[in-house]
């Protein structure tokens, strides 16, 4: 990045003297304003580097240091401690479960909307809805689920007193894995609706008609065309939902009070100085998270590229 900026500037220096002599204003305006334009990006890049790239990069460096500052890989071996391994496993399981659950439900809702047959206005209503619900996360969402499925939550009480089903006696706990999963799914569903809708809109009705015309049954259409065409978009959406759950801190923190053993909570605890007393291990934890998120976003971009190529 910086290299190309430099080049631009040097390039201009070389061209500067004939430019001064030149009379035609318009002709010379283009190259000059181009390098000036690059200069205009500097504030943005400075900001992003100062408050995102460099701080995140400093974690990277820290992850390769011992507490005394020497280069070391010891932090990464510490990642294989059972409690840390298990926190990664739980986080991955949680992300996978909620991405799958929320993704499937969201997909069917979006598909239903695309099929039509629902009242007019359902679509725009649902898109506002999804916008709200996918943004409705963190503390208030945790409260909402406590009011619903907590020990005194209305649904819990309703199930116990009216239907005789005692959720908590049967092992359910809102502050455990499944409780957290149900809560996450609340924002995963609408996010899925929002991101899969464009892909569904791009499915041409003529594909179905052409396949019917060539003798295929609806099942054969889905097997040979529908699912293969949607697959990249579906996988991409799934990965996005996965990452969305993987990095979530606020909901888990406010629901469980920091008691569930997932990676973001562990990192948060490290920052707050509660548990590990080993900042460099914290950096390695964070790095592990960034690594997984990077993989996710790479896979996402790659799948999106395939999908958009097909959808042209």
């Amino acid at each position: 990045m910086r290299d190309s900026l430099q080049k631009e500037r040097f390039g201009r220096k070389g061209a500067a003297s004939p430019e001064k002599a030149g009379g035609a204003l318009l002709v010379h305006a283009a190259p000059r304003s181009k390098s000036k334009a690059w200069l205009g990006l500097i504030p943005f890049f400075v900001f992003i580097f100062a408050f995102m790239i460099i701080p995140a990069g400093s974690l990277l460096i820290g992850a390769f240091q011992r507490n005394d500052g020497h280069f070391s890989l010891v932090n990464f071996s510490k990642l294989f401690r059972p409690n840390i391994i298990s926190s990664y496993v739980v986080t991955i399981r949680l992300s996978f479960t909620t991405a799958l659950g929320g993704g499937l439900l969201g997909f069917f809702i979006a598909y239903g909307i695309c099929l039509g047959g629902l009242p007019k206005g359902t679509r725009s209503f649902m898109s506002t809805f999804s916008g709200v619900a996918s943004n409705f996360a963190g503390v208030p969402l945790a409260f909402a689920f406590i009011s619903t499925l907590g020990r005194m939550g209305l649904v819990t009480v309703f199930l116990r007193t009216v239907l005789g089903i005692d959720l908590y006696a049967s092992g359910f706990n809102l502050y455990s894995f499944w409780g957290l999963a149900l809560t996450y799914i609340y924002f995963q569903i609408p996010l899925m609706v929002l991101i899969i809708q464009p892909a569904l809109d791009n499915m041409k009705k003529e594909w179905r008609e052409a396949s019917e015309n060539l003798g295929a049954s609806p099942l054969q259409y889905w097997l040979h065309i529908g699912i293969p065409v949607l697959l990249p978009s579906l996988l991409a959406s799934f990965i996005l939902l996965f990452g969305n759950a993987f990095g979530a801190y606020a909901t888990a923190f406010s629901l469980t009070g920091g008691l569930i053993n997932i990676v973001p909570i562990l990192i948060g605890a490290q920052i707050r100085g509660d548990v590990l007393h080993d900042p460099n291990l914290g950096y390695a934890l964070a790095l592990g998270m960034v690594f997984i998120m990077t993989l996710a976003i790479l896979a996402y971009s790659w799948l999106q590229k395939i999908a958009s190529r097909w959808m042209k």
Partner: peptide
């Protein structure tokens, strides 16, 4: 599917996959 007619659509409708 049972009529055995060939159809060509305005937007080609080739299967993209």
């Amino acid at each position: 599917a049972k009529r055995n007619l060939g159809m060509v659509f305005q937007n080609y409708a080739l299967f993209p996959n």
